[in-house]
Write a protein that binds this DNA or RNA. Structure first.
Lengths: 147, 147
DNA sequence: GGTAATTTGCACTAAATCAGTCCTATATAA
DNA sequence: TTATATAGGACTGATTTAGTGCAAATTACC
C-alpha cells in the first residue's frame, strides 16, 4: 500500500521544479542538490518524466529540464502512472487476470472499483497543490471524496 | 501502488469464509483447498486475522476459524490495515517523517490528505460487497466517491 | 487416558523486486 | 574544439516479500 520510493522521488522532483521556476531550465545536478536525492537517481527519473512529456528537456550545454505544462495541469495520478504503471491495487484489478484463485475470481470487480476510486482521488491533486501547501482549501476537501 | 500479495490473499480468505458460511468453522486446510493458496500461507494469514479479532478461532480437534462479525461490518480498509499496517502512500504521510528531503518536506501534508482519501475509499467497501458481486448497485457507486 | 486434529508462535530460506550506479552515445553553447 | 548536458541501456547490491518448517499448546473423540 505504498507507492515506490522512486515514484515518491519523482514527485518530489516535479514539485521542486514547479516551486522553483516551472519554466526555467533545471539541471539534474541542481535538482539533486536541491532535493538531496542522489544524482544518478535524479537523472534517471528526469529522463523518464521527459519521455512521457511531463517535462521538456533541452540538451547540450546550458540545457536542462522544465515543466511541459503549468503545475495545475499535472496531476499526481499522471505522475504515478508514468513512474510505476497503471494504478491497480491488485493484479486482477487491471485488464487481465490469469490468477488461479477461486476459479471465478469473485473479488475482481470490487477491486476494479476500488482502484478507480483511488485513481480519481489522485487525479484531483495537482503539482500546484503540492507546492507549499496552504493548509487551507482548496486542497483539504480533495474533490468531495467521502461527501 | 499495489497492495501486498499476502494482503490480497488475506482478503481472498476472508471473502471465502464470508461467502461460505460466515459462522461455520473453517479449517486452514479446507480454506487452502478452496482458495488454492498454499496452506502454510493460509495458516499464517488466519493467525494474523484472528489476532486482530477479525476472525474468531477455536482450537483443538474440529476447531477452525469463523468471522467475528457479520460481513457487512468488516471493511477492506480494516483488512488492509491489519495485514500491512497503516494506509500511508508515502513514508512521510503517517505520523513520523525523518526524511532528509527538501528540508521542510513540502509534500507531506498533501500526501496525508491523499492517504486519508484512499483510506476512506477502502473503508466504504465491506466483505459483503466482495462476495459474489452483484454488478449492480450498491457497490458500483462506492459511497459517492467522485460525486 | 491416549490419540489425532487443529491452532499458536517463532525462525528460517529462497526469490523477487527495488534502489542505486555506471558507461557510452548524442546534442549544444561558448 | 571543448565543456556541459541529456539519452539510453546494462549491471549490481540491498531490501523486502513470499513461502516454508518446526515445536508447543489446546481440544474432541474414542
Amino acid at each position: 500500500m505504498r507507492i515506490n520510493k522512486l515514484t515518491d522521488y519523482g514527485i518530489v522532483i516535479a514539485v521542486h521544479i514547479a516551486s522553483d521556476g516551472p519554466e526555467r531550465l533545471h539541471t539534474a545536478r541542481e535538482i539533486a542538490a536541491g532535493t538531496r536525492i542522489p544524482q544518478p537517481t535524479v537523472t534517471r527519473l528526469l529522463k523518464q518524466l521527459a519521455r512521457s512529456s511531463i517535462l521538456t528537456s533541452t540538451r547540450g550545454a546550458s540545457g536542462g529540464y522544465s515543466l511541459a505544462q503549468p503545475p495545475e495541469a499535472i496531476s499526481v495520478a499522471r505522475l504515478v502512472e508514468t513512474l510505476e504503471g497503471p494504478i491497480a491495487l491488485t493484479e486482477c484489478s487491471g485488464t487481465v487476470c490469469d490468477c488461479a484463485l477461486e476459479g471465478d475470481c469473485a473479488t475482481e470487480v470490487p477491486w476494479q472499483t476500488i482502484s478507480l476510486a483511488v485513481r480519481e482521488a489522485l487525479d484531483t491533486v495537482t503539482l500546484a497543490d503540492m507546492v507549499r501547501p496552504s493548509l487551507t482549501p482548496p486542497l483539504v476537501p480533495l474533490g468531495g471524496i467521502r461527501a
